[in-house]
Design a protein around this nucleic acid. Structure first.
Length: 263
DNA sequence: ATGGTCGGGGTCCGA
């Protein structure tokens, strides 16, 4: 069972990159972020033709998340609980049925929060508090659960090639990092760090100033695993070469393989 | 070198 996450930075602009990658990597489940389209505009047929079921929570112009699955999708639920006035499409959760039991996945597009001096940063921190509250509820189910997405958090200085460039950024603030640690401390395993230490493991490179060519990258796309998912973890990969292609997203996919009967 | 690049939608905002 291969579960992946990718911030595609517009599903319409990068559909070719997405379908090529789906064919090559063959994930069972994919969490997508930054669709930048409404539900009706999601390129459903192109992705269904590759064998995927689809649950979308879209929005015009901004945000937008989806879950793709080769296995049946049950009870897809959009929206992160805790604020009925929050209109951003940043969260969708679903249960996936497999021959070896169910796995719950959430596709997460956590607010960027820049600039730090504005309400955008307050919104980010409040959103992280809501995520922790909801995740705490989900853990009581004692299911295999994967929180997958663009968390817009650089967890430590080891997660940036040039950490000093990010000291004033919302992605690296102490308040941001503390909330990410608190979320993990509820009982989640950071899948990538469970398998590899050290620097040089990045999922995002800015379009500006030749960031990719300089390897000025950061690790902000994460797979957080419940104990029941972590027990089944086999390996984790980052598809860095996707960033070197023509007209790429600024993020690359991250995926993890689990010991489920399906693979 | 105090900039730079994308995408969406509309002549700027968000990242």
């Amino acid at each position: 069972m291969r579960i992946a996450s990718w911030n595609v930075n517009s599903i319409k602009a990068h559909l070719g990159a997405v379908t090529s990658w789906l064919k090559e990597r063959e994930p069972d489940v994919v969490c997508l972020q930054e669709l930048k389209c409404v539900d009706e505009a999601f390129p459903r047929e192109e992705i269904e033709s590759l064998g995927y079921n689809i649950a979308v929570h879209g929005q015009k112009t901004y945000n937008g998340v989806a879950i793709l699955s080769k296995h049946p999708i049950d009870e897809a639920k959009p929206r992160l609980p805790g604020d009925d006035k929050d209109e951003h499409a940043r969260y969708i959760e679903a249960t996936i049925s497999t021959k070896d039991g169910a796995v719950r996945v959430a596709s997460i597009y956590l607010p960027n929060g820049n600039p730090v001096s504005t309400d955008k940063f307050k919104y980010k921190l409040a959103w992280m508090d809501r995520l922790a509250a909801h995740a705490s509820e989900l853990l009581t189910l004692e299911e295999p659960l994967v929180l997958a997405g663009d968390f817009n958090v650089i967890p430590t200085t080891a997660d940036a090639e040039f950490p000093e460039k990010w000291t004033d950024d919302a992605l690296a603030q102490p308040e941001t990092r503390a909330r990410f640690r608190a979320l993990a401390a509820l009982g989640f395993t950071d899948a990538l760090r469970a398998t590899r230490d050290g620097k040089g493991l990045y999922t995002f490179w800015d379009y500006q100033a030749g960031a990719f060519q300089k390897n000025n990258g950061i690790r902000i796309d994460h797979l957080l695993l419940s104990p029941q998912a972590a027990d089944r973890l086999q390996s984790v990969g980052i598809d860095k070469k996707v960033r070197a292609a023509e007209k790429p997203s600024d993020h690359v996919p991250i995926y993890a393989d689990f010991r489920f009967a399906t693979r």
